[in-house]
Simulated scan of single mutants.
Amino acid sequence: MSNEAQTNSDTSATVQRDSAGRLRHLITLEGLSREELTALLDLAQFYVRSPGELPARDQTLTGHTVANLFFEPSTRTRVSFELAAHRLGADVVNLDMQTSSRVKGETVLDTIYTLQAMHADILIMRDAEPGLPAYVAGFVAPNVCILNAGEAHLSHPTQGLLDALTIRQHKPDFSQLKVLIAGDITHSRVARSDLQALTTLGAGEIRIAAPDDLMPRPGEFANARRFSNIDEAIAGVDVVMALRIQRERMSSAHIVDEASYHRAFGITAERLRKANPDAIVMHPGPMNRDVEIASDVADGPQSVIQQQVTNGVAVRMAVLATIARNVQARRQLT
Rank of each mutant, 00 (worst) to 15 (best):
M1F: 01
S2R: 01
N3S: 06
E4A: 06
A5N: 04
T7L: 09
T11Q: 00
T11C: 00
A13N: 06
A13H: 12
T14W: 07
L23R: 09
R24Q: 13
L29R: 07
L32E: 15
E36A: 15
L37I: 11
A44Q: 05
Q45I: 02
V48I: 08
V48A: 08
R57P: 01
T60L: 05
T62C: 15
G63W: 11
H64S: 15
A67C: 14
A67Q: 08
A67W: 08
F70Q: 07
F70P: 04
S74G: 04
V79Q: 06
L83C: 13
L88D: 08
D91G: 11
V92R: 02
L95W: 01
Q98M: 14
Q98T: 14
S100T: 00
S101T: 11
S101H: 03
V108I: 13
L109A: 10
I112W: 05
L115T: 04
Q116A: 15
I122E: 00
L123G: 11
P130C: 12
P130M: 13
A134L: 13
G138C: 11
V140R: 00
A141N: 14
A141S: 15
H153K: 13
S155E: 14
H156I: 08
P157D: 15
G160W: 07
L161K: 10
L162A: 10
H170V: 09
H170S: 08
D173H: 10
F174V: 14
Q176G: 11
K178N: 13
I181W: 06
I185F: 03
S188Y: 03
R189F: 08
T199N: 12
T200F: 14
G204H: 05
R207I: 10
R207A: 07
I208T: 12
L214W: 04
R217L: 09
A222C: 02
A222S: 12
N229Y: 11
N229K: 13
I234E: 02
I234M: 05
A235I: 01
L243K: 07
R244A: 01
I245S: 06
I245A: 03
R247T: 10
S251G: 15
A253V: 09
I255Y: 08
I255G: 01
D257C: 06
R263I: 03
A264G: 03
R271K: 03
R271Q: 02
L272N: 00
N276E: 07
N276W: 01
P277W: 00
D278V: 00
D278N: 07
D278Y: 01
A279M: 01
V281P: 00
M282S: 00
M282L: 05
P284F: 03
N288K: 02
R289H: 02
D290I: 01
A294S: 04
A294M: 01
A298R: 02
D299N: 00
P301V: 04
P301I: 00
V304I: 02
V304D: 04
Q307D: 12
V309W: 03
N311D: 14
V313N: 03
A314G: 08
A318M: 05
I323R: 09
V327A: 15
R331A: 13
T334N: 14
T334W: 09
